[in-house]
Write a protein that binds this DNA or RNA. Structure first.
Lengths: 101, 101
DNA sequence: TAAAGTAGTTACCTTTGCGTAACTATCAAA
DNA sequence: TTTGATAGTTACGCAAAGGTAACTACTTTA
């Protein structure tokens, strides 16, 4: 478990994996699909996920350049887990009590 | 997903939940069961998990004092997810290549 | 020659996560 | 009165995570 969390224990990485669950995506698409993530964190997270064998980066020698990110087998194995995590929130989420000023 | 990760997206919280999957535990037990966690992070993580309705803190008015932590229903719903995450690592873990000096 | 599109990078800064070590409170027992 | 046990807290500081904004590189199209 400690090792799993060494790889995934950040706010954004599971969200990136979840976003790639049913499609490849290009850098700009990920940036657009994931609200509030900064390009910088996206870059570094993608790089680390690639190093950990979870995603694959495919570069097309075109103009303008195109790069696609997709899950590896190891990454695909996480899809059901990520989906359950999303479902868990839907089931148990409660609006925070409104602040009365 | 963003909300799930707002609650769980740290290195230690999922490990704490995983540790409580099959037992209640006292503060000192958690400190001993979870290798390398510091008491400070344990304290603050437990507090936040309680605020998020994932664990329950039960204080016994004894001497010496005793406090037990256990998962709530919301927390128990995470058990299968955490177990899958642990299993995922066992399946896909590879020893890092040894450094040759 | 300048704009437009893609995929970043870089510099700089703030916040959060986390660690270590020492300290606190309470009461019982020695 | 000192020790021991439990469950923390506090002070201090480092490193990682994350944000913003401006900039780069390449080539096509206007």
């Amino acid at each position: 478990m400690q090792r799993s969390m060494g790889i995934l224990g950040t706010r954004w990485k599971p969200i990136i994996i979840y976003t790639l669950r049913d499609r490849k995506a290009r850098f700009g698409q990920l940036d657009a699909l994931i609200e509030n993530i900064s390009r910088k964190v996206l870059t570094s997270s993608l790089k680390e996920l690639e190093e950990d064998g979870i995603i694959l980066r495919e570069e097309f020698k075109e103009l303008p350049p195109r790069v696609e990110y997709a899950l590896t087998e190891k990454g695909k194995a996480l899809i059901p887990i990520m989906c359950q995590l999303a479902k868990w929130n839907e089931e148990y989420y409660e609006e925070p009590a409104p602040l009365i000023l």
